[in-house]
């Protein structure tokens, strides 16, 4: 059993496992079952969104015009690119090209920051316009008061509650992603023995793709807002 470990280099087999295959597969299943909970997590918000959109269809359609499609689209491209660089990082980790892996990881982190910066502009605009739900909510929105005049404030609050809850939760995931990716890059840079096993990169990759996946749904739901 230990030959595999020797053969594959310095990959560490923890004492509870028999061999590297078992360990890797365990990691994979563990990560996926964790992602199951993430799906359910976003699922609740998604369901609330769909339900209220179904109830206030026209209003939601009108309100969504306050969101900037271009920013959303750019962000989608950024996240897709980061996903691409992430798979490359996993690929390079598998074939042990450390420097290529590092640059792919750094590119991913850069994309994540880019995403956050654009989100920051979007959010700060909304905050200035008083669109944060709560006692200080300003309605009709200053951006387009004529169009929004017909929309009741409570529905608008609902829309923005859901908007901030879902994109906010997604944003938190991005920030967590940056922290994990940063740590990983640091370990790769320091040639730590921990990252000899490509599984760690692979798992972080799964997480990052999931973040991308969520955005793939959030983008059309909020920005393209099918009528």
């Amino acid at each position: 059993m230990a030959h595999d470990a020797a053969h594959l280099g310095k990959q560490q087999v923890y004492e509870q496992f028999e061999n590297i295959d078992q360990q890797n597969e365990s990691y994979l299943v563990g990560m996926w079952s964790f992602l199951v909970t993430e799906v359910m997590f976003f699922g609740v918000l998604l369901f609330s969104y769909v339900l209220y959109r179904w109830q206030y269809q026209d209003y939601f359609y009108t309100i969504h015009k306050l969101l900037d499609v271009n920013m959303g689209a750019v962000n989608t491209v950024i996240l897709l690119s980061s996903s691409y660089s992430m798979v490359l990082a996993v690929h390079f980790a598998q074939i042990k090209k450390r420097s290529a892996q590092l640059s792919a990881l750094l590119f991913t982190i850069g994309c994540a920051f880019g995403f956050l910066i654009i989100k920051y502009f979007e959010y700060s605009h909304k905050i200035h316009a008083g669109l944060v739900p709560g006692p200080k909510f300003v309605w009709p929105a200053v951006d387009n008061p004529e169009l929004m005049a017909n929309v009741p404030a409570s529905v608008a609050q609902m829309f923005f509650s859901l908007y901030f809850a879902m994109t906010g939760l997604h944003g938190i995931h991005v920030i967590v992603g940056i922290l994990i990716l940063g740590t990983l890059s640091f370990l790769v840079w320091r040639k730590s023995s921990l990252v000899e096993d490509y599984m760690i990169t692979e798992m972080i990759g799964l997480y990052w793709h999931f973040v991308d996946l969520v955005w793939i749904f959030l983008f059309p739901l909020f920005y393209l807002m099918p009528r």
Binding site: V29, W32, V36, L46
Partner: peptide, 20 residues
């Protein structure tokens, strides 16, 4: 096994639409 868990969440999430 991985495939099963990869799709379990999505399948189960669709269950929630029973609420509709």
């Amino acid at each position: 096994l991985t495939k099963f868990y990869a799709f379990l969440g999505f399948v189960w999430f669709s269950l929630m639409f029973l609420m509709f």
